[in-house]
């Protein structure tokens, strides 16, 4: 059983307590990027990613040469002034960064298309407002089937890469929120299975030293099987053909906005296509000296 990656807010005291631990650190300020990176390394931990949720546009982000090599997930509201972004493009292309744009802004599907075509890895951040599944489908089609060179767009690439019809594929991993891989911890060492549980005080354990005990915890096993609640309902997501790659993520809006079904069904077909292309392109491997 692989150890979990821990997700926490940046807190120097907390980070110092970890040892040999893979970490996702959520920053509140761009100034913390280098500091957090250095601290994680100094404490002999392994930085999986730094996350910054920026209320402003991409154009307003103060990118820095020294961010090179640091894994970053940057959530921004929109692209903003395009000229500004173009000016930063050479550096942006060089950084180990993925830029997420929210579905709450209708222009962002186009924004993601542009970023990917410029060679910047990016991703959809699912917001609160009604999702335009048709626009999402166009973006996904471009991401998976597009012949012209472009960078990846998540979570489409994640699904395509990880899809295995014999098991569920959970796109929450793209957002560091899948308890198979990630667990969340606060500065008081309260441990929760999702970001939301941590926010709502639904803790499963306390104390860094107890992290490895999580596998024995019944609540953990229950959380891993939480998707089964859909199988107890008379209608809804359990009857959806795309269930295995969505697992009811949009169940609350699916009645009012049922386009999710078609979108995820098409994404599953795209994943099938991706697998078959990969198998076709698999090069013969000759023995290595």
């Amino acid at each position: 059983m692989r150890d979990h990656i821990l997700v926490c807010q940046f807190d120097e005291d907390l980070v110092r307590k970890f040892h040999n631990q893979r970490l996702v650190i959520i920053l509140s300020d761009f100034n913390q990027v280098q500091q957090a990176h250095k601290l994680v390394n100094d404490c002999q931990n392994n930085l999986h990613c730094l996350v910054i949720d920026h209320a402003g546009s991409l154009a307003s982000v103060p990118f820095h040469e020294k961010w090179r090599g640091i894994p970053l997930a940057l959530f921004v509201s929109e692209i903003g002034a395009f000229k500004e972004v173009m000016g930063k493009l050479p550096l942006l292309r060089d950084l180990n960064i993925r830029i997420f744009l929210s579905t709450d802004n209708k222009e962002n599907c186009t924004g993601l298309h542009i970023l990917a075509s410029l060679g910047i890895d990016c991703g959809v951040s699912f917001g609160e407002k009604e999702i335009d599944w048709e626009a999402m489908n166009d973006l996904m089609t471009y991401s998976i089937y597009g012949k012209v060179n472009h960078a990846s767009i998540e979570p489409f690439q994640f699904i395509a890469r990880n899809y295995n019809p014999a098991r569920l594929t959970d796109l929450s991993s793209v957002y560091f929120d899948n308890p198979y891989t990630y667990i969340h911890i606060d500065k008081n060492e309260n441990i929760a299975l999702t970001a939301n549980d941590l926010k709502e005080g639904k803790f499963i354990l306390k104390g860094i030293e107890n992290v490895h005990k999580i596998f024995e915890d019944e609540k953990y096993q229950e959380a891993l099987n939480a998707w089964q609640k859909f199988l107890l309902k008379e209608n809804g997501c359990a009857y959806c053909q795309a269930w295995r790659i969505c697992i009811g993520k949009f169940s609350e809006s699916a009645d009012k906005n049922p386009g999710c079904r078609q979108f995820f069904t098409d994404l599953m077909e795209a994943a099938d296509h991706f697998i078959s292309v990969q198998q076709k392109n698999k090069r013969k491997e000759v023995w290595q000296p």
Partner: peptide, 16 residues
């Protein structure tokens, strides 16, 4: 009434 729905449900219960 709903053969395909039942099929989807059953294959979601056991994916293969």
């Amino acid at each position: 009434k709903r053969p395909l729905d039942i099929f989807f449900f059953l294959s979601n219960l056991k994916l293969t």
